[in-house]
Design a protein around this nucleic acid. Structure first.
Lengths: 213, 213
DNA sequence: GTAGTAACAAAAGTCAAGAATTGTCACTTG
DNA sequence: CAAGTGACAATTCTTGACTTTTGTTACTAC
């Protein structure tokens, strides 16, 4: 393999890097202020003009970084979802604990995190909900990610001999469906934190018992 | 026990009965017309004045039969729910089939009926949904009824020795929760009839297997 | 005393104007 | 060439006068 010849001066490289870094940082700054305004004034009263004004820039420039208002809000939701996933991914990665225990803990944590977010950050939850309603690809990606994590825990269980499963992916979807009542935004929003998560534990006990057959 | 003495003429009795019958029939007529208008013009564009006009009566008279607009719509939803329950109650009553099979059939039918109603009667579904959102007691009653029917099937299973359950009522709620994804109005509305009910069957297989432990 | 009505206040809905927002484009700047 | 701007059309969002609807009450008729 022949080494690539970089046809550029150090100066032009630095410039390009700084441009990229700047692009990224203003992108982040825009996202930050959007979240801030969203929290303060809610979804309805936050527009790209407001965001631009808060940052002392023309609204056209916001469109340089996000192709549309909904793209901007999608990015906010994506970030929000990343925060939701973080504690779950930790559980998925912790290969020491037995799969059944991790599976139960995973669904419980999902429900808890969603609940905390709904109660503690209602404005951002509203953003996420409006995106869910439009059936965006952000949601599809999120569901796929959740399914993959659950499937990985299931595969660990298969490897350790706890279960025999034909399709861990399909079973993962089955588990997400079975527990939707406790973590799906459309349902968490309805009974504002009234449902008892002990019911979720009981449900998972039955599902896990059923998986062992 | 001493026989009750009826202190009234046949004439006054007939009058009272006819009054009751009439009350009932105009009540029914009002409900019928409401459903009709709801179907034709949707939830937003149907008011008690419209209903009264369609029946050639003053709107005040509608208020003689229903205390408020929402009471009228509650009654519509109640009727709608009764239609949903009918095929389920049949399954609950059919004591010949084994409990596990009936349980699976029951949840499947619930999902199917809800789906059919959503697709075939979107206007009335909208009414039902708006009532669900306001967390009315109509919904609580409906959920209680569903729980009781599932609990009865579960008790049949316990009697026949298929399962041992501490609390059929709690387990019934568990099953309703687990299958909410497939029959809860808030979810059925989202993926307009796209979800595969085979997934519900698979889920119920796992739950039923889990119940046997 | 039940079915029904007419007249009324309060709340909610309608609609067209003017205002603001979304999104595009040609343009400047480092 | 990427970050940024001002001017612009198209589209949505207010706003406030006006209309309709909701719900009550005092009434008639059987």
């Amino acid at each position: 393999m022949r080494p690539i010849k970089w046809r550029c001066s150090t100066a032009s490289v630095e410039k390009a890097i700084s441009a990229l870094v700047n692009a990224d940082s203003t992108r982040e700054r825009i996202l930050d202020t959007t979240v801030e305004l969203l929290r303060r004034h809610g979804l309805g009263k936050t527009g790209v003009v407001d965001v631009a004004r808060a940052l002392d820039m023309s609204h056209s420039n916001v469109y340089k970084h996000f192709t549309s208002k909904s793209a901007l809000f999608d990015a906010v939701a994506e970030r929000w979802l990343a925060q939701v996933m973080a504690p779950l991914t930790k559980i998925t990665a912790d290969k020491k604990a037995p799969a059944a225990k991790r599976l139960k803990q995973w669904t419980r944590t999902l429900a808890e995190v969603k609940r905390k977010k709904v109660l503690g950050d209602p404005a951002l939850f509203e953003v996420y909900n409006s995106i869910t309603a439009d059936a965006h690809d952000v949601v599809a990606a999120h569901v796929a990610r959740m399914r993959d994590e659950v499937a990985e825990i299931l595969r660990d269980g298969v490897r350790s001999g706890a279960w025999k499963l034909r399709s861990p992916g399909a079973t993962a979807m089955l588990i997400l469906n079975a527990t939707a009542r406790f973590h799906h935004p459309a349902m968490v929003g309805l009974d504002e934190g009234r449902t008892d998560l002990a019911e979720l534990d009981a449900l998972m006990d039955v599902v896990i018992a059923g998986l062992s057959n």
